[in-house]
Write a protein that binds this DNA or RNA. Structure first.
Lengths: 203, 203
DNA sequence: ATATTTGCTGACCATTTGGTTAAACCATCT
DNA sequence: AGATGGTTTAACCAAATGGTCAGCAAATAT
């Protein structure tokens, strides 16, 4: 039972908008549908957020701010490379199993409107590869891992962890897995992915 | 100079629809916009394709039929595992550099409407993991590669190759790469990815 | 108690959008 | 030349959609 009584209308709207936008995208979502889900009048959407575009941006930024910290653990924490890979593969997959819509939503809208990235970069602590690059180069020169570009390794880490969520419907088809079976496959990836990466980069 | 005179209206429509749908998605695309791009009257869209939904499905199926054969090279050809990985990483990236919109389009619309997969499975040679699974299990028992589930390896191969295209805008932001620089990174992945995978699964 | 601000709603509006229809156009056949 | 059948277009339409506005309700201030 969710207490809907004691959360503000503004919050109810944002929650409803999250749900609808994440499922249907900016252009597929309807203001009326969001109002219905929030169980308030459509006018109230505009009262609090002025326009569909602004409501969407509020939702998008909220979503992005859920993901950015996870990426930053890889790029800007003081863990060892191995720990980063192990922890990220574990934590990210756990998190995503609870929010499987998120990566698809963010990537989709970012592809639709690439200029949006420029806006994101300027604010907050937008993930940046610099520190990670230094760490990787140091580890290579110290003989801890094999020669590899930080960018390529970083892309690989993201790809292996994020892609299974974005491509879920397709992969389910290829491997003939039910929702339940696919969830098991994803669970196994928590350790499988880290293993896979480390086996590839160790000397 | 493209000869637009000698291609049929039906074809012009499909080409225009491809372009618009791939950029804006089903709900974001406008019939009028497609008509404008095809330089024909909007009514003609309905004359040839009846409805937006049917036009979209024609575009989607055409797109999917471009991708399926590439996947099938991995799943259903008689190459060795290594060759498959090397060839797929090389061919797929080359192909995608020419059609960078494709994977995003397909995955997006499949996520929006997962039942669509069910339809796809029934027709044509929809990629299936069975043969690949046999090949992997044989290679493991023969001591050619380390122990690994075929599903997991397959997901990894797809993830490493496809993800960089889907997440392009985001990654560009993280690694501070221009379009040109990012393209170079992708070019390098043609061999980089195969290397990465093989290093991980060899004994 | 009354005034004033803030939260919320129903009715309404202009525009957009997918889709239809009747008529014009045009090549081919008789 | 005239009939025929496929192709193309302009004009139109009903429904949907984002958005506005005047007013009601409820809280807060005076």
């Amino acid at each position: 039972m969710i207490k809907t009584k004691d959360i503000s209308a503004e919050e109810k709207i944002l929650n409803a908008a999250e749900h609808i936008f994440e499922n249907k995208g900016l252009s597929g979502a309807r203001m009326q549908e969001i109002a219905d889900e929030a169980k308030i009048n459509k006018s109230l959407l505009h009262y609090y957020y002025r326009s569909k575009q602004l409501l969407f941006e509020a939702v998008f930024k909220k979503a992005f701010n859920k993901l950015a910290p996870q990426i930053n653990v890889v790029l800007n924490s003081d863990q060892s490379i191995c720990d980063k890979i192990i922890n990220f593969s574990n934590n990210y997959t756990s998190f995503m199993l609870k929010h499987p819509y998120l990566p698809n939503f963010i990537l989709q809208e970012l592809n639709r409107n690439p200029d949006f990235v420029t806006e994101l970069i300027s604010v907050d602590n937008f993930p940046n590869i610099k520190n990670f690059k230094i760490q990787i180069e140091k580890a290579i020169s110290e003989g801890k891992i094999r020669q590899i570009k930080a960018e390529q390794l970083f892309i690989n880490i993201l790809a292996l962890n994020i892609f299974p969520f974005i491509a879920a419907p397709l992969i389910k088809g290829f491997v003939e897995a039910s929702d339940k079976e696919y969830k098991i496959i994803l669970e196994k990836r928590k350790t499988e992915v880290a293993d896979f990466i480390i086996k590839s980069i160790k000397l």
